[in-house]
């Protein structure tokens, strides 16, 4: 049931949001300096989907949401598929048009990510509250086997200056 749902989502994503795939492709095309970390193609993702990793979301109030996630899923997939209670997360459903899936990584994890943020991701991050040097959008982080035990912080979505 769960697997069926995931592959359906992956499929949907392939058809509905070519944008993120194009961005990844662009990234491959423009930055040869980073060729050591190959970006997985979608076929790789499907093959690896039965592999699981542990993942923890730390909310701004300190609450920890620990979950098991499929390799090949994005952090946004994990939140949606596991019905994690993170309010408002992923408003645009992974199409790089909002920054509600903003997460902050530890420096060492951030540096290890196989893909750097593309321009469009940075554009959206620029609108996020509490932007840090290790901020990413959860919809753009695809889990790999070596991310087992990853912890990410979900910052608060409000800026007190506005209230």
């Amino acid at each position: 049931m769960n697997i069926a749902r995931i592959s359906y989502r992956t499929l949907l994503k392939t058809f509905n949001s070519p944008k993120s795939y194009i961005n990844k492709y662009n990234y491959l095309g423009t930055s040869f300096s980073n060729h050591g970390s190959a970006v997985p193609l979608s076929t790789t993702k499907l093959r690896l989907k039965d592999e699981k990793v542990k993942l923890t979301f730390i909310l701004h109030d300190g609450k920890r949401l620990e979950t098991e996630a499929n390799v090949g899923d994005t952090l946004l997939d994990v939140v949606v598929n596991n019905d994690l209670n993170i309010e408002g997360y992923g408003a645009c459903e992974g199409t790089l048009t909002c920054s509600t899936c903003h997460v902050i990584l530890k420096k060492k994890d951030y540096d290890k990510l196989p893909e750097e943020a593309c321009e469009e991701e940075r554009d959206m991050l620029d609108l996020a509250y509490g932007l840090t040097d290790t901020s990413r959008l959860g919809c753009q982080i695809t889990l790999t086997k070596d991310m087992d035990g990853l912890e990410v912080t979900v910052p608060e979505t409000i800026n007190d200056a506005r209230s």
């Binding site: 920054s99 509600t100 609108l127 509250y129 409000i158 506005r162 209230s163």
Partner: peptide
């Protein structure tokens, strides 16, 4: 309440608050 500024994320944050 906040004035007509900001993107949906900002409205979301304010509404949650």
């Amino acid at each position: 309440g906040t004035g007509p500024i900001g993107v949906i994320l900002h409205t979301m944050g304010n509404a949650f608050q």
